[in-house]
Design a protein around this nucleic acid. Structure first.
Lengths: 168, 168
DNA sequence: AACTTTCACTTGAAGCATCAAGTCAGGCAG
DNA sequence: CTGCCTGACTTGATGCTTCAAGTGAAAGTT
């Protein structure tokens, strides 16, 4: 503080060790940012074009199709698709309007709401799946070696754990 | 087509080789999907809370701050932040209202619009950066080994290339 | 039994993204 | 120099997401 402390542009490299990112770290991070931006966009575009579904809608139908009785609680569905209950509620309302899904209060405990896949929704999912899977294969699964794909999944899980961990 | 073809639930495992995903592939893919969903959400939440900025807004300010004269064409900015020109136009209008940025037609060629970072925008960015970088370090950069981070960046680039490649 | 609380949603308003159409500058053809 | 044409945005409407507040069912409290 005795000497001047401006000169924001250039500074000794070690000055911000741990505060800023090194150039290599930054490159990797920016690649990840681009991936997070453009991969969802690419998949949404494909699904929208070929099946008039967004990725969350697809995931929602897919999760229901694998549940017993084609039925899941809204809260479970929200967890599994990583969305807020509010977003899911609006979204299911739209799927309901389109006849893909219906809702009913859980007969055993009226606080819960069950979302139930309808045959038309299953048909929609089945018609959308092949092109979607093919595209996911092309972009990701068949584009990386088995080893790298597995590690990518692991890295993702490791990051997700940190997101969920309480600190900060 | 001569025999019945329903029974959607169970089918021989090799039946859809290459059409569906194996259980390991599916696990990895679903991890990636969760990452794409929740990492942007986590970062947006942190930035919003600490600096009242979204990630795209942050990136926009950051790109401008590193450009000569704190100036970039809208189209360049759109490329660099992976957004559409339309979205960027709306976004920059909002940043303009807040006094972070201004726009002017390129004096040399009036078809281009330059976005220019204002001192207030730079100040905003500088106040937001430390907490943002710390969070990125915590979730990603310091959470993976140097080796794994580099590979993650490479995998991302590989996927991005496919997204950009014309076929399909 | 009345009450409070909690939990699991639902809703409406406001903000942001997307899509299609419009504008406007400069290059080019005649 | 007039009239297209292209490219680079900008705009307005529509739809989806988010945020804050509301509702209603069951469990616990007194």
């Amino acid at each position: 503080m005795t000497t001047q402390d401006e000169a924001p542009a250039e500074a000794p490299a070690d000055e911000h060790a741990g505060l800023w990112l090194t150039s290599g770290e930054l490159d990797s991070w920016l690649s990840v940012v681009r991936l997070m931006t453009r991969l969802p966009w690419a998949i949404d575009t494909q699904l929208q074009r070929d099946a008039d579904l967004s990725m969350v809608e697809y995931m929602t139908l897919a999760m229901l199709s694998e549940a017993p009785e084609w039925t899941l609680r809204m809260s479970t569905l929200a967890e599994n698709t990583s969305t807020s209950l509010s977003r899911l509620s609006h979204l299911v309302k739209r799927l309901e309007r389109r006849g893909h899904v219906r809702r009913e209060a859980d007969p055993a405990d009226g606080r819960f709401t069950n979302a139930i896949l309808l045959p038309a929704g299953m048909a929609k999912l089945e018609s959308a799946a092949p092109a979607h899977v093919a595209y996911v294969r092309r972009l990701v699964v068949d584009n990386l070696s088995g080893e790298r794909l597995r590690r990518l999944g692991q890295d993702a899980e490791r990051i997700l754990q940190r997101i969920d961990s309480p600190a900060r």
